[in-house]
Amino acid sequence: MRTATVLLGFAGCLVTGAAFAPSAFAASLPSAAPVAQEQAYAQRIVNAQFPGQPGEAHAFDHVIQQESTWNPRAVNDTNPEAQGLGQLEQGPRAGTDYQAQLNAALHYMLQRYGTPDAAWAHETTSGWY
């Protein structure tokens, strides 16, 4: 299993896997793409949507870290329908292209919350997004 004990997040944020509870992903398989590659792609798509607003990429990074520890093959043990980087119940399934999963996660955040920052705010108060 790919570990995420220390990851350098967007905009120089330090994100530690210990700060989150990814226990729901113990049965997940490792990803073929390095976490840094996934994060770089995510930063590009979020920054394209929110130019000049680095806080949005930072919030997106936190949501994905909290939901899957950046493992595109993560499957939630309490809801097996929630899979992949964004733990979405619909859309790209676990193990599929990480880019498709990140695009779907961003689309979900935009549709439901308006911004990744608002999604992260909901995640921190409710434990889900």
Rank of each mutant, 00 (worst) to 15 (best):
A19H: 15
A19R: 08
A19I: 12
A19K: 03
F20P: 14
F20A: 15
A21G: 12
A21D: 14
A21I: 13
A21N: 14
P22A: 09
P22L: 11
P22M: 05
P22W: 03
P22K: 09
P22I: 09
S23H: 10
A24L: 11
A24C: 09
A24F: 04
F25P: 01
F25D: 06
F25Q: 03
F25N: 01
F25C: 14
A26S: 04
A27F: 05
A27Y: 05
A27L: 06
S28C: 02
S28W: 01
L29R: 11
L29W: 10
L29G: 07
L29Y: 03
L29S: 13
L29H: 09
L29D: 11
P30C: 00
P30G: 00
P30N: 02
S31A: 01
S31G: 05
S31C: 05
S31R: 10
A32E: 02
A32Q: 00
A32G: 01
A32C: 00
A32W: 03
A32D: 01
A32Y: 03
A33K: 04
A33N: 00
A33W: 05
A33D: 06
A33V: 12
P34Y: 07
P34E: 12
P34I: 14
P34A: 14
P34K: 12
P34V: 15
P34N: 02
V35W: 00
V35P: 02
V35Y: 01
V35A: 07
A36S: 11
A36D: 11
A36F: 12
A36I: 14
Q37N: 07
Q37M: 13
Q37A: 15
E38Y: 15
E38P: 09
E38R: 05
E38N: 09
E38W: 09
Q39C: 04
Q39N: 04
Q39R: 10
Q39M: 08
Q39F: 00
Q39K: 03
Q39L: 07
Q39A: 14
A40T: 15
A40S: 07
A40K: 11
A40H: 13
A40I: 15
Y41L: 14
Y41C: 02
Y41F: 14
Y41W: 03
A42Y: 00
A42W: 04
Q43T: 04
Q43A: 05
Q43L: 09
Q43K: 05
R44V: 07
R44G: 15
R44T: 10
R44H: 09
I45S: 03
I45P: 07
I45V: 08
V46A: 05
V46P: 02
N47V: 03
N47C: 14
N47Q: 15
N47K: 08
A48L: 03
A48Y: 07
A48K: 10
A48V: 06
Q49P: 10
Q49G: 09
F50V: 06
F50M: 10
F50Y: 12
